[in-house]
Nucleic acid binder design. Structure first.
Lengths: 233, 233
DNA sequence: TTTCATTTGTACGTATGTATA
DNA sequence: TTATACATACGTACAAATGAA
């Protein structure tokens, strides 16, 4: 009896490991059986175990530490980042603009999301947002990049939603955008003071509880970015 | 000279393969070097090559066909599906509702997207959409499931955007939703005729070029689904 | 600091399953 | 059906990293 038909052993092992995590209710960071134990439990060779673990590692479902052990991963969206980055760089028909596609989705998402947080954001939340903008301003005047502050702003903006997936997804898009435009020779960013003002407009509108204005400000913010991704710029 | 510090050979091999695809401009489906060739080119063992390829396979960056060869993958969003499915099933704090998080994002996305297609959809597009609803109706009356038709409706709806990522992302969310609610014992779906009517309302509003109405109809559609994911349902 | 056991990383040889021509 | 090229699987050996005695 050689092996089950239609299924390579690798996917069987993968599912077994995943099922083990689920059954035992293991949390991210919890230790998994060693390769040797998995070999014995599943009655497969070490190579097969390792190939399965490598696949799960790529999905951030397991985390492997050399000389130490294997652990439950955080199932982050890094696989999505890797995939989208690859797609954007591999696009032959460059004019379709893989980056523009990502940006459009981000735009739709954030324009819709800002409406939902507009009513729930507290004054302290708005203070924190304003502080980030202030720091962006400082960095901009000093000629320093403030990519990370930009990211922080958008993450903070949607924290009150209580939806953990939102910042992760936006963060993934953001990372892809930065990586690709960097590796591809990024077109000049808009002037720092413009970006700062766009963000400040958003906070101002939110503070005034002007939902329409906030959404408009967000749209303006994105249109500023889109100009940089135009295929024939 | 043992090896580069801080980096395991596996990721080096992964990057080399990706770079090879990029440099040669290989398209999805194009053949990659055999394992033996990669061994020689990169001066590593077969195991190392295979582990790297398995990781890339999990990301759908390469596609491995048993007994035939290795090919450039389509970089689909299956890794995202796998990751989100795992997260949803592994959630210990079940009340946070990983499915509800996904659904909220879908809702925001589709409510924003429908506004953008409302003005660009042609009459033939609307006819096609209506035909899908008709088929849903038939299936519903016959007591058959029409999950796939539902998916087709939403894909068709946004086809005119020309954004290839949109249907893929929505499809990924949709697949996760179905898998998880299936594996978790799905709560009863709403009556088929209700679902059909909700979709017909969307088409009607679009045909009347009533943007607000279309967005409202989409919101109603999603609120019907959300009731099924309430943690304490 | 050194030593040691544990665990993952890499390598090689061999046999077997699988798809194509 | 056969031949060929390829991926799959296994077993063994050794290297490298980590943590603890």
């Amino acid at each position: 009896m050689p092996r089950m038909a239609g299924e390579t052993g690798n996917s069987r092992i993968r599912r077994a490991v995943v099922q083990l995590i689920l059954d035992r209710g293991l949390r991210p960071g919890a230790p998994l059986p060693t390769e040797a134990e998995l070999m014995a439990d599943l009655k497969v060779s070490r190579n097969s175990v390792r190939e399965a673990l490598k696949a799960l590692q790529a999905l951030d479902i397991v985390e492997i530490r050399h000389g130490y052990g294997t652990y439950v991963g955080h199932a982050s969206l890094t696989p999505l980042v890797d995939g989208l980055t690859f797609r954007a760089l591999a696009r032959h028909d460059r004019d379709t603009g893989a980056l523009a596609e990502i940006l459009q989705i981000r735009e739709v998402l954030e324009e819709g999301l800002i409406r939902r947080v507009a009513t729930t954001l507290t004054e302290p939340d708005l203070d924190r947002l304003e502080k980030v903008v202030d720091r962006m301003d400082e960095a901009g005047r000093a000629g320093l990049p403030f990519d990370e502050l930009d990211r922080e702003f958008h993450e903070l903006l949607y924290a009150s939603l209580g939806n953990a997936l939102v910042p992760q997804l936006l963060g993934a898009f953001w990372t892809v955008f930065r990586r690709v435009s960097g590796a591809l020779g990024r077109p000049g960013q808009p002037a720092p003071d413009v970006t700062v003002r766009r963000h400040r407009d958003i906070v101002d509108a939110l503070r005034a509880r002007d939902i329409e204005g906030a959404q408009r400000a967000m749209a303006v913010h994105f249109h500023g970015i889109e100009a940089r991704t135009a295929p024939d710029a």
